[in-house]
Design a protein around this nucleic acid. Structure first.
Length: 758
DNA sequence: GAGTTTGAAACT
DNA sequence: CAGTTTCAAACTC
């Protein structure tokens, strides 16, 4: 789109960034106008017209200049390397430090090769009034992107994180989200809005992760809406207060920056882009006065300008986003869980293995905090990561829930229909996994008693960083969990010769298409909710807890469907007529229709499991999962997504490896979690899906399902009354939870639906 | 951590 | 479509 112009502009900017001359040049050079133009375009697309008035700051131009200067300062300060030129490099290296100038320079390239995030960075320096608003968001994106890409910057991140933490842990977390959002939707700028919106919401209720999450998700959805501009408008309109506040604050910040460019530069020097984001956030929130903040904001502005490019990237980004999501989610979790502090710490480290996806950086599951920031909704991977992180943290339901929405949103992004589709598919897949991730941590927590659980937990932790371990498939076959989930491989992955990376996006997509050509449902969730598949499979199969069934059915011969080797068991669903298994003893539901397990509550399951086999642990988990799943299924409100991914993921969680992305499921999972927890915050929901499910399944889910989906209720009525029990038990066990879940579920469904709408 | 088992995915 | 091979996860020691 505007790339040509941007490219031109960017290069000069990068060069001059540091020097004051640069600013001057910018003002004089035609380039600026171009950028501004670009920005304007983005805005138009967004239909921000109304906003501009608000943001319109008299000093837009000056701001731009100042911003550049500031940015330069940041870049310089933070990274002497700053000079690094290639977009890729910039992304990688800069990730954190990403300077506006660099962004510009590299933006074109980066965008092409990498992600929307890059494009975002590129964003023109100055968008006038409107830009100012955008700037707020942009900064986040920039920071985020920067931080993610470069492992090198880690230190920076740490610094940034520190700054962020200082200001507010929540803020930090928020920033990432916004960034993420921007990435997803960046193309249109809608994302930015969403991000802003989220941020605001977060600010308002940092503590209430859940709420935030929901709001975020909602925002994302909105953004995702095909009509980016509209979505944007809506966001602003809908959340006039928050947005406006941002805008206003932002404008103020800009002014401040202009006045005190130095301040920002200083901080920037110390810190990285990450810190900046946090700072910016703070500024926007409340401290226009702080110079640093202003500085931060400036960088953001730059980011904003690039939206046009970002758009193209967005599509790409969407896919990748999934990955990012995980990371993000994790980050959030960390943030929330650990509160502000944790988030800060974590992120610092993460580096980014890959530019491609900011995801990588997040992944470093080690630093949950990092994950948090990055991006909420952007990438499924991020979610997965989050989940993993969450495992560590466990509590952090937050990330999960949050991520989901975002993910969903990203998928829906209207920008590229095809891409969207793919992204959706990925998302769906991711969702499935995500839930698992979420679940896993949770389950583990609950079930900790069982050794397996501990194991899983340990594994989970270890896995937090880990994903696939492919050696020969290059992560381009369904053997690869990551690939199968529609997620890019990240650092945690121990894969070799991995091609499932943003860098090889083309290859990945091509491969996906090939596989899909063979089997259109190859990337669809293996476990289907009762609503869809159930009918086909057979009543019995539907019996499974949630009425969910395995799409294709298993073919187990030696595991008796009592181990994770069995996809049905793994997915927490009972075997159906479609299954060709031998000696089926699936605790969730036998092929015969005999539903051994009621999944209702863990205890029962456990006992059964113990009785049946040594499987105790597995069984328990399975049961739990099943319960969860069942519930979900029941609740199922049939995923809005194309695929009802349902529950499958749950089992994963148990595995410990969390399926990376929750996208589709995530939403659902998010619902579950949210429901379950009822607790405001918590992202955990997703994380914990398993546990939650356990609880929920028994308690909450049923109701939710009932309400939401009378059909799902069918679960109770399941052909074989067997399955019914689980839900009931659940209900009986803990009614309280249900209420919360219900809310969540409702919210979740909406997301998916939105995405599809495009 | 290494080795084995398992069953899905891929191939023929 | 069936049989075989390949693959990576799940599991065991």
């Amino acid at each position: 789109m505007d790339t040509p112009e941007k490219t031109q502009v960017t290069s000069p900017l990068s060069k001059f960034e540091d020097s004051p001359v640069f600013n001057y040049i910018n003002s004089l050079s035609p380039i600026k106008p171009v950028k501004s133009i670009n920005i304007a375009h983005t805005f138009h697309s967004l239909s921000f017209a109304s906003l501009p008035s608000v943001f319109t700051s008299p000093h837009v131009n000056s701001h731009k200049e100042t911003r550049f200067l500031k940015r330069h300062n940041y870049a310089d300060l933070s990274k002497p390397e700053f000079s690094s030129e290639n977009g890729n490099e910039a992304c990688n290296d800069e990730g954190v430090a990403v300077d506006a100038a660099q962004l510009y320079d590299n933006s074109s390239e980066l965008q092409e090769s990498f992600d929307p995030g890059v494009s975002i960075r590129e964003a023109s320096v100055e968008p006038p009034s409107e830009h100012s608003k955008l700037a707020i968001e942009l900064p986040r994106t920039l920071k985020y992107d920067c931080g993610i890409p470069d492992s090198d910057q880690t230190p920076r991140c740490g610094t940034q994180t520190d700054t962020v933490s200082k200001s507010d842990g929540t803020i930090a977390s928020l920033v990432p989200f916004t960034n993420v959002a921007s990435h997803k939707d960046s193309p249109e700028g809608q994302v930015h809005l969403a991000g802003l919106y989220k941020i605001e919401s977060k600010k308002e209720a940092t503590e209430c992760d859940w709420e935030n999450f929901i709001s975020d998700s909602a925002d994302l959805l909105i953004f995702n809406s095909p009509i980016d501009a509209e979505g944007f408008k809506e966001l602003f309109q809908k959340s006039p207060n928050p947005v406006v506040g941002f805008c206003t604050s932002f404008s103020e910040v800009q002014k401040m920056q202009i006045v005190n460019p130095i301040g920002p530069g200083e901080q920037n020097e110390k810190e990285d882009p990450f810190t900046q984001p946090g700072e910016t956030i703070e500024l926007t929130q409340m401290d226009p006065t702080q110079d640093n903040l202003a500085a931060n904001k400036d960088p953001n502005k730059y980011i904003i300008s690039n939206p046009s490019k970002a758009v193209s990237n967005l599509h790409r980004g969407m896919r990748r986003r999934c990955l990012d999501f995980e990371m993000v989610g994790a980050r959030r979790k960390n943030v929330e869980d650990g509160s502000s502090t944790s988030s800060v710490v974590v992120q610092s480290d993460e580096k980014i293995t890959y530019k491609n996806t900011q995801l990588v950086p997040f992944k470093p599951s080690s630093d949950s905090s990092r994950c948090i920031l990055p991006g909420i909704g952007l990438h499924l991977n991020a979610l997965a990561i989050n989940s993993r992180d969450s495992k560590k943290i466990k509590h952090e339901t937050f990330s999960s829930s949050i991520t989901l929405p975002g993910s969903a949103a990203s998928f829906h992004s209207p920008t590229s229909g095809q891409e969207l589709d793919e992204s959706l598919a990925l998302a769906s897949t991711e969702r499935d996994r995500d839930p698992n991730d979420n679940v896993v941590p949770f389950v583990e927590d609950f079930s900790q008693t069982s050794p397996k659980k501990k194991r899983r937990r340990l594994e989970g932790e270890a896995e937090a960083c880990k994903r696939c371990n492919c050696k020969k498939s290059k992560c381009l076959k369904l053997y690869c969990e990551c690939f199968a989930a529609g997620v890019y491989c990240i650092e945690p992955c121990a894969c070799q010769d991995c091609f499932n990376k943003p860098i090889h996006e083309d290859t990945v997509l091509a491969t996906r298409k090939q596989i899909e050509s063979r089997n259109p449902l190859a990337f669809a969730p293996k476990v289907i909710r009762s609503s869809e598949p159930a009918p086909e499979i057979g009543d019995e199969s539907s019996k499974t807890p949630a009425s969910a069934r395995h799409k294709r059915g298993c073919n187990c011969k030696k595991s008796s469907c009592l181990k994770k080797y069995c996809e049905c068991y793994q997915g927490g669903v009972g075997c159906s007529l479609n299954c060709r298994c031998e000696g089926c003893k699936n605790a969730f539901g036998r092929k015969d229709g005999s539903a051994l397990v009621e999944m209702e509550d863990e205890p029962e399951d456990e006992t059964e499991a113990s009785e049946k086999n040594g499987v105790d642990k597995t069984v328990q988990k399975a049961e739990i999962q099943n319960n969860d799943e069942q519930h979900p299924n029941s609740a199922l409100p049939t995923t809005p997504l194309r695929f009802s991914r349902p529950l499958v993921q749950l089992p994963f969680s148990s595995k410990g490896k969390p399926p990376r992305c929750f996208l589709g499921v995530g939403s659902s999972s998010g619902l579950y979690t949210g429901q379950r927890y009822g607790k405001p915050n918590i992202l955990r929901p997703q994380w914990k899906f398993e546990k939650q499910f356990q609880n929920v399944s028994g308690d909450e889910i049923p109701e939710m399902l009932r309400e939401n989906h009378s059909p799902s209720s069918g679960i109770k009525t399941s052909p074989n009354s067997k399955r019914v029990s689980p839900p009931q038990s659940n209900l009986g066990s803990s009614p309280g939870r249900r209420s919360g879940r219900k809310l969540i579920l409702q919210s979740i469904p909406s997301f998916p639906s939105l995405t599809p709408q495009h």
